[in-house]
Amino acid sequence: MNTRVMDADLLSDLLFGSARPLGGSKLGDDELIQLAADAFREKPFCIVRHWMILDVMLPEFQEREIKAQGLEATLLYALAAVFDSQNKYQPGDRIVSGYQRDFDGCFFESNDTIFILAGRGARKHASFPAVQALSAY
């Protein structure tokens, strides 16, 4: 089987396979932008919709390396950026975050950004090859 077919199979399962539904903020985009701008003055933030929390299944040594940095082997995948305080992402851009520093309610924090999860999303386990295919997609 060639790499493109394997990547397509991995992505299909990742994006369309079963996942545990989660709820994010119920506020509208403009309201979220204003609240986030007031609350997160010291750290960049990004509001996203159509998101999925991915618990990445890694070899033990890689997971230890990530935990040694104070992070968890969990990523955020968002199909649509709504607003980014640094203009790194434009509205509608797809995002694959760095590993998780903190996750609480509708806030997912990576090393460099706080992501505000708007609307409904999901959580699931993902293989490292599937995450690599997603990042390359």
Rank of each mutant, 00 (worst) to 15 (best):
Q69L: 15
L134R: 09
F108I: 04
D55S: 03
P129Y: 04
F40P: 09
R4W: 14
L15N: 10
A19E: 07
A136N: 12
K67F: 11
M52I: 03
A8I: 09
M6P: 09
Q90H: 10
I114C: 08
D112K: 11
D104V: 15
L79T: 09
P21K: 06
F16I: 03
V5E: 14
G121Y: 02
E109H: 09
G92F: 09
N111P: 03
K88N: 13
A136C: 14
A8S: 13
T3D: 15
Q132V: 15
V96I: 10
P44F: 08
F103Y: 12
A68F: 10
K124F: 00
Q62S: 14
S12M: 12
L27H: 09
V56G: 00
L27A: 15
R94M: 15
E72Q: 09
Y77A: 08
F40K: 06
Q90A: 11
H50C: 13
D30E: 15
A136F: 11
Q69M: 14
C46P: 05
C106M: 11
R20I: 02
V96S: 07
F83R: 11
F40H: 14
A19H: 08
I47D: 08
S135Y: 06
T3P: 09
S12Q: 10
G28M: 11
M52Q: 09
D30K: 14
Q90S: 12
A130I: 01
D7S: 15
L58N: 01
D7H: 15
T74Y: 01
E42P: 01
R49H: 13
T3V: 14
A37E: 09
V96D: 04
R64D: 12
S97D: 10
A68V: 07
A36D: 06
I53V: 05
E72I: 03
